[in-house]
Design a protein around this nucleic acid. Sequence first.
DNA 1: CTGAATCCTTCAGGATACTG
DNA 2: CAGTATCCTGAAGGATTCAG
Lengths: 132, 132
Amino acid sequence: MSRSHTDVPSPARQAVLESCPIGEVLDHVAGKWSIGILVAAAAGPIRFTELERAVGGISRRMLTLNLRKLERDGMLVRTVYPTVPPKVEYALTPMARELHDTLVGLTDWAERHRGAIAAARADYDATQPAAV
Amino acid sequence: MSRSHTDVPSPARQAVLESCPIGEVLDHVAGKWSIGILVAAAAGPIRFTELERAVGGISRRMLTLNLRKLERDGMLVRTVYPTVPPKVEYALTPMARELHDTLVGLTDWAERHRGAIAAARADYDATQPAAV
DNA sequence: CTGAATCCTTCAGGATACTG
DNA sequence: CAGTATCCTGAAGGATTCAG
């Protein structure tokens, strides 16, 4: 029997559907700070205040929120030492470490094309009528 | 001479600084739609309306904005055919194609850990006192 | 030291209508 | 077909203050 007109999504649509999980990845990595935190913690367990300095420019609020999110997603392990003053360490999980490795691929790409992108942008801005 | 107390950033801080370009990457890939557009256009030149259907759920406004942004960054080439009705095709640049390949690494990671992340989340939510 | 709580601003993104 | 122009909302994020 003939198919209705609502089926067979285009190849492009299928490709989008298949790469859908990448959207979830980005959810864990999205935001201004998640990656910075991941990178800062990659070297080994790191304390709250150390993170604050390492990431640079992040507010306490956002640091806390992002840490909670990453912990919830199983990217970070939070260890509290019941001392006084309190000491809390955050460490990457193996999963997060893998992610960190994968991210290196992106960094490389960025390094390689940083100049090209800047050039393309300058070119575009020069070509387009000034958006007054 | 002894160094002041303001120098020698921590290793973690240095790591963050070194991986800084990744922040720029994300700027090009950030947002809800950029990746979808990239993926949809990966198969070959694609028209505006085709993109609209392929990405799915995107508004005309956001599609236009994202296309302009990607074009400006040198990820897309916009070709106008002065016919009637108008026909416009968007094609990935080699640079964007490389990015697309790199993104596959992330997709793989997401696939592999999708379950683990969901589990970690359920675990976390079960452990934490219900945030009423 | 490590947060939680509150207030406020900004802006990505959605809905809708109009046009060459 | 391929946009542009407006209006509007929600969520991200910054600043500041309070607390165990």
